[in-house]
Design a protein around this nucleic acid. Sequence first.
RNA 1: GCCCGAAUGGUGGAACGGUAGACACGAGGGACUUAAAAUCCCUUGGCCAUCGCGGCUGUGUGGGUUCGAGUCCCACUUCGGGUACCA
Length: 924
Amino acid sequence: MEYNHKDIESRWQQQWREKGIYRAEIDPSRPKFYVLDMFPYPSGAGLHVGHPLGYIASDIYSRYKRLNGFNVLHPMGYDAYGLPAEQYAIKTGQHPEITTNENIARYRSQLDKIGFCYDWDREIRTCDPDYYKWTQWVFLRLFNSYYDKGADKALPISDLVAHFEKNGSEGINAAETKELHFTADEWKAMDAKEKSDVLMNYRLAYLGTTMVNWCPKLGTVLANDEVSEGRSVRDGYPVEQKMMDQWCLRVSAYAQRLLDGLDRIDWSDSLKETQRNWIGRSEGAEMRFKIAGSDIELEIFTTRADTVFGVTFMVLAPESMYVDMITTDEQRAAVDEYIASIKHKTERQRMIEKKVSGVFSGAYAVNPLTGKEIPVWISDYVLAGYGTGAIMAVPAHDSRDYAFARHFNLPIIPLIEGADVSEESFDAKEGRMINSSSDILDLNGLDVKEAIAKTKARIAELGIGKVKVNYRLRDAIFSRQRYWGEPFPIYYKDGIPTAMDDKDLPVLLPEVDKFLPTETGEPPLGRAKDWKTKDGYPIELCTMPGFAGSSAYYLRYMDPHNSEALVGKEANEYWGSVDLYLGGSEHATGHLIYSRFWNKFLFDLGVVCEDEPFRKLVNQGMIQGRSSFVYRVGESNTFVSAGLRSQYDDTQEKHVDISLVNNDVLDIEAARAWAPEFKDAEFILEDGKYICGWAVEKMSKSKYNVVNPDDMVERYGADTLRLYEMFLGPIEQSKPWDTNGIDGVYRFIKKLWSLFYDKNTLLIDDSEPTAENLKTLHKLIKKVTGDIEQFSFNTSVSAFMICVNELSAQKCRSRRVMEDLLVVLAPFAPHVAEELWHAIGNGTSVCDAKWPAWNEDYIKDSTVKYAVSFNGKARFTMEMPADAGKDAVEAAAMAHQDSAKWLAGKTVRKVIVVPGKIVNIVVG
RNA sequence: GCCCGAAUGGUGGAACGGUAGACACGAGGGACUUAAAAUCCCUUGGCCAUCGCGGCUGUGUGGGUUCGAGUCCCACUUCGGGUACCA
């Protein structure tokens, strides 16, 4: 029988499906293991060969755990809400649901061909009402909760209301948008709208007026992690800043817990570091500066309290509420003009220009520690969203303040001994303080760190400020002016945002005639007929963002058909948290923050039993494309081979489809047929060939470098694709796809096959394995076991190749050896392993076998090779009995015939013997 | 700018501080074949060699630790990734 992957793979895939062997059920008698892939957004382009990389790795790990007796939960689903389907709907009028379902069907068929062990009975789609009901359900909980900083957890908003009834805002220690002060009587006197406004200040899901990233092209707001360098991450459209009423999640309340949790989880250091930076904890002090001749106090935040004596001016963010309050009449016109000029610029423009700009407010503030009066300026280099939106400027020791001071000719006072501030500021936190003394505080001679501590203590003592920890992490903006997303379970009762009841869930996404905003600029849901509650109140028009549906999907997989709860107690307690999570590092500051926040909140509520959702996380690298180019000479219809390109002044590179290129040699006839512009083109050859240039780029249709896994499966089979993707290199590393190498893996499978079959004759018998056979086998078992535990799948593939070559040379026919070999191979190449497993007479599936243990005795050598070096440089090898003692090894090395040559005329100073490895003789 | 990470043949990549380049691709040579595909065998870091003895050199650069460094430490260069007026 010849190896026929098509026949084998479709047959076994069908059998596995029919027998449902990958179905996972709660089984307290077995240990559980939860392996999760980041679920994909089903895009119209389908999967390319890079997508399955992580899925293959997690599949290998899942199968390995199964073989080791674990009850493995390995589910898959679709992050089905998203912009591309909606964009397509706007263009064509086709409902995004239709597009999405088509794309899902395509993804599924592509995934199925690769032979994954997913439990498809647990599939979820975020756009499915049975699923998004629970997304809405969590939102209602967030809406009805606040964060108590004392208890350090989320509590019901009703607790807060009870407190207000009794004590007003007195003694409240809650995460809040801004500090509010009112008495119980004042609270009671408020009308419904006023009370709603006050509670919004505390709710974990709240409606707030915030500066948002508005993308006019997409007609929606974007979260910070969806914006990069002033453009939308997904499509690259410009993004501008705009004040809008938006639903927000108070993620910032969990900043410290999100930070602390990182120490308890097994993620890569770089990913943890990225999250730490994103959360951006910074310890400093808040300090109040009085405005001269008024009662107004400006509050600032600084990490450099030690530099108070170098404060020569203050700066407010243009959006700061103080701007209006302190601007003098003389400066009013200038300030208004400046603020207007800022508003015109988008964030992107501001960033590109990076020009120093600002305006004097006319007001002066009093430095509380020196008594000196300093001017207050307004500039856009101070951000409204961080700290208090106001800073004390210390030009000598902060580069931004320095640039500003230079531009506007403001004084610069150096505070650190030896710091030269004539050309640039001295930002380092080191050195001894000078020029820092007044009646109130003396820092002279102190080290920077001591000075910071002393100043903080003094500020607190004087009651002009306090020690404060700030976080860069902002609340997540949760509204999208879009159609294809989860509707909010919120309606407006006389203008007051009101939560729906659990029994009203799910709030189904309504039908609309078009997917565009309305003529009056309302979101698309404004087009829905009767978008009202039963009582006739209007329902929220925005939908939730993409990260809503992906924030708790891993919980739903545990109990996907539960209609009573997001996840049942029993299921949650059994499956716990995700033991292994695989996905791309691009979610480091988005999904992976939001779902941790979401999970911690649900933990506070007692809905889930684990505080962290993903115990171990592995980022698989990206597989990039390897694009091929031809070079057009000037504007002509002549193309020059890559090697001759330098002989022409003006050549332009042009992508050509990689299917036309083999080992960088262009198939010219195929190229002529491929594109009209090549039809009559002239090709200048080198050595009779047209050599293409190449570059590693992201795989995309427009670069003609996409490799489709279906084609690979068709030509080589799923097992070869799986092995090859693993063989390409370490899983975490990004690497270009190169189809050329796949033949090597394909050959390996054929060699494996020929170990079992010669034509139609099965070669395997019941003969006893030889010592050699066992050594080869057990080396493999040991290696692969270790590799899988460490996610080093590429070296496992090499180990299989070596093993098969050895067994083939040994003419091994022993069934015992082959069985173990197939079990170890099964996670990597399940189809061929299953086929051969049955061929040698096993009735049950190899997926249900037991992972073999290796026996060290079989691997042990009776003799060991020692590399003998002189002064560290290896010169020759000698063989010694494995149990020879150090002295014997040393003596043998010294007495070896080759030693004489290296020892001639030298004295031996020292001999180092590393058992089983090396003898190093140090000679002088 | 700041924070991570990386740098090894023509290519992808192996190497608990112990004979660098496993394994694979590609290339070259050969066998089989009318021929091709497939398969198999040999060679393959560089340089030298009285090319079947052997030798020298070699893991981005420069130092250091060590009997011994691709691996550890310091400085630098280059390339990726993240982030950015975050006070």
